[in-house]
Simulated scan of single mutants.
Amino acid sequence: MAAAIGKECDWMNLPAEARRLADSLPFAAADGATDGSSSTPVSFWRANTAAWIFIAFFGLASRLAAFSDVALAVALTLVLDPIGFVLTAAAYKFYLERTSHRGAVIAAWALACSVLGGLLQMGIANALKDGLFPDIPAGNIAANDAVPAVFYTAVFLGWSLAYFWIRADVDARSERVRRSEAQAAATRAELQHLRLQLDPHFLFNALNTVAAEIPDNPEAALEMTHRIAAYLRYSLDQQARPVCPLSDEIEAVRAFVRIQELRFESRLRCSVEMDPAVRAVPVPHLVVQGLVENALKHGLRSSAEMLDVRVTVRRMADDAVVIEVVNPGQLAPRAGDRPAVGLANTRRRLELHYPSRHELSLVQDGDAVVARLLLRGNACFA
């Protein structure tokens, strides 16, 4: 289950992960690390060196088998393969300057470079054989001047194909990085917008209450002002943090309820029961307050006497966290009710923070309305 939960948030970590994978690929000119003295990625030099070490061993074994002359095979390997390394490094630079070319154009360049490289290696090999090994028997394959051209043309073609294949993979990863960064930025902006909707909504209602209390009950209005200031200070302190420990969220709920208690005097009572095992669980800000605010709004309207709101937070056997808010009243909406902005806001934030890993329900249970929120795993964007 933990692995499945982790995959729900993988797309948000894609920019860093994709960049790390792109950096690890050879020929990653745009994103690879450099060695400090050149703009060429260190990963290219490592990959190219490893490739030519393999080619050198393969070429040496092939020459020993074909030529039956150890000195000739070793001499050709020591001369031609380092030159091949230099030629592919030059081809790398050449290809980088033509990254805008695609399809047949770049294929023609690759073929032309490979053939020229093969012909150059043939000329060097023949000069070496003529200078150091003039007595090669006519029947020996080493006497065939075209062999180095065929061998190295094939090597350079294979190298070019590998380069363009890896380059295309790097470009695809870079595009995924750009798309995922844009998606993550848009989602973070939406989350910030949703959260900023809640504070003005609460502040508007609270200040209206303070204004109503000032003429008849200035002491209560002053106390309410202090509590509103403390609550807003907490909200501002948490502005840069997308999540907070569940214990902090419950304290914010208590501060919210204390403000409402001054507003509704003896009609409101709120109790909170929280399992100590869930105190440190990170949750989005104001996710519990939205449920409590909804309970107060509809519970006070339906109850003529005492409104008793109960908040229960506990951990399930599968490590899911369950938050229940219970209030007396009726779930059926009344005519003329405006859409529940706070509840819709909470639902949307839960979809972003816990995709496919949350359940939010409002049900009638006898004379009470039960809001039940179940959260599985860690919040995304934590």
Rank of each mutant, 00 (worst) to 15 (best):
Y163R: 08
R173I: 09
F133Q: 01
T153C: 10
I136M: 02
R167G: 11
D171M: 03
A149M: 11
A168M: 12
V177F: 12
S180C: 12
F156Y: 15
A162K: 02
V150P: 05
D130C: 01
D135L: 01
G158T: 13
R179C: 04
P134Q: 03
A186Y: 11
A172K: 12
R167Q: 13
G131Y: 10
D169G: 09
E181W: 10
L128V: 15
F151G: 01
V150R: 05
I166Q: 08
A143H: 13
P148Y: 05
E181K: 06
G158F: 13
A138E: 02
A182N: 07
F151T: 02
N140R: 02
I166F: 11
A125L: 07
T187D: 08
D145G: 07
A143D: 05
W159Y: 14
R167A: 10
A142E: 00
A162D: 06
S180V: 01
V177P: 04
A162F: 15
K129D: 00
R173A: 09
V147F: 09
A138T: 10
A127C: 14
F151I: 10
L157D: 03
L161T: 09
I124M: 06
I124C: 04
F151R: 04
D169P: 00
E175I: 03
D135E: 03
R188G: 10
A154Y: 07
A172R: 15
Y163Q: 08
I136P: 00
A127M: 12
Q183H: 14
F156C: 06
D130L: 12
R178W: 08
Q121I: 13
S160H: 14
A185W: 11
A185H: 14
D130F: 07
R188F: 13
P137G: 10
N126G: 07
R167E: 07
V155E: 03
R188K: 15
V155M: 10
A146Y: 06
T187V: 14
A146K: 02
I166A: 07
A125R: 02
F151W: 08
R173T: 05
F151L: 07
T187P: 08
F164T: 04
W165F: 15
P134D: 04
V177T: 08
E190G: 00
Q183C: 05
V147S: 02
R179Y: 08
A168T: 11
A184G: 13
S180F: 12
A127T: 14
S160M: 07
N140I: 06
P134T: 03
N126W: 09
N140Q: 06
V170L: 09
A127G: 15
A162I: 14
L161E: 03
L157N: 06
A127N: 12
Q183L: 14
